[in-house]
């Protein structure tokens, strides 16, 4: 199978859906003439023209709201945030409008829209460019929330998100746009709300999603090599709705769970998973669930701070060893 970059996989998804449906369009900062801040939309202006690939001023609240209004009136916008840190400026339109239009109107006005862009840390970018908001958005009924970890999932899930008739938050990472992965030439869809077992194992379950899946997989590999601990690694892929079934089935098999997430700990997805696991699989657990999240502080600039802040292989392997009592 051919290998392409994450940005190419995302571009193919949007491009294919725009060819398929005239109502799909891309709107955001630098998406057209600049070819995308991270080159996701490279060449799309040439193919579709300025009517469907639309540069905006730096006005997230305004252009997100215009996209939401357009979706109320029959279009299917793909609304790009240069980073989800900037989406906070637009969050009124996402939470108060997009997520609620269908319900408030008694089902009359829908909101088929995708808000997409990178989330999380991406090196030494300082406190305002290093935040994760998947759990914030996942808290809101009316939204679906996806965070991808590789090019194959990215393409299949983004196509599903664009075809979905509900508002979908689709989260990427600046540090993954250059990642390469196998993506078939022919089109395919991946259903929203279905987790994927990225590595099968018998001793411990690790649940994760997004960029930090790399840490989870690296830790699993190290534990297999060095400690002969076979870790099952589940990529949630969607964090609203969460595929609890896959998680619970795995925990019933391994009896141990570590959740790895790039987000602040309080009210995080990992602590949410922990509740559900004790609720549904209490008698199967042989150790307390452990959550490895970012540190509970704003991320500072220095490299030492980045190292301290993020979940890493060492912290994950230690947590796994703790739940297997070695």
């Amino acid at each position: 199978m051919r290998t392409i970059q994450m940005r190419e996989a995302l571009r193919e998804a949007i491009t294919e859906e725009m060819r398929r449906d005239e109502n799909v369009f891309l709107i955001g900062e630098e998406v057209a003439e600049y070819n995308g801040a991270y080159k996701v939309s490279q060449g799309m202006l040439d193919e579709f023209g300025p009517r469907r690939v639309i540069d905006t001023p730096i006005a997230e609240l305004g252009f997100a709201g215009i996209a939401v209004g357009a979706a109320m009136n029959g279009l299917r916008p793909v609304c790009e945030f240069m980073t989800f840190n900037f989406s906070l400026v637009a969050i009124d339109q996402v939470i108060n409008a997009s997520a609620k239009i269908l319900s408030m109107s008694g089902g009359q006005f829908g909101n088929p829209i995708v808000f997409r862009g990178p989330t999380g840390s991406a090196g030494q970018l300082g406190a305002q460019h290093s935040q994760s908001f998947a759990n914030w958005y996942a808290n809101t009924p009316g939204l679906k929330v996806i965070e991808i970890s590789n090019p194959y999932d990215a393409k299949g899930l983004l196509k599903s998100a664009i075809r979905d008739n509900n508002p979908v938050i689709f989260m990427e990472s600046e540090q993954m746009y250059g990642d390469k992965g196998e993506v078939p030439e022919e089109g395919y869809l991946i259903p929203i709300g279905v987790a994927d077992i990225k590595r099968a194992g018998t001793d411990v379950t690790i649940v994760s999603f997004g960029k930090i899946m790399k840490v989870a997989l690296a830790a699993a590999e190290a534990l297999a090599q060095e400690n002969n601990i076979q870790v099952e690694v589940i990529d949630l892929r969607t964090v609203r709705p969460i595929d609890y079934k896959t998680v619970i089935e795995s925990v019933k098999k391994t009896n141990r769970l570590v959740v790895v997430e790039e987000a602040w700990p309080l009210a995080s997805i990992s602590r949410e998973i922990s509740y559900e696991v004790q609720r549904q699989a209490f008698d199967y657990l042989d150790a307390p669930v452990r959550c490895i999240t970012t540190r509970d502080v704003p991320l500072g600039y220095a490299p030492t701070f980045v190292e301290e802040f993020l979940p890493n292989t060492k912290r994950v392997t230690e947590a796994v060893k703790a739940v297997v009592y070695v």
């Binding site: 215009i66 939401v68 209004g69 279009l75 108060n96």
Partner: peptide
């Protein structure tokens, strides 16, 4: 939400223009 409907109104018009 006071003012929240203003971009929505523009978006509705955007769709008609589109």
């Amino acid at each position: 939400i006071v003012g929240g409907q203003i971009p929505l109104g523009a978006g509705i018009a955007f769709a008609d223009q589109y």
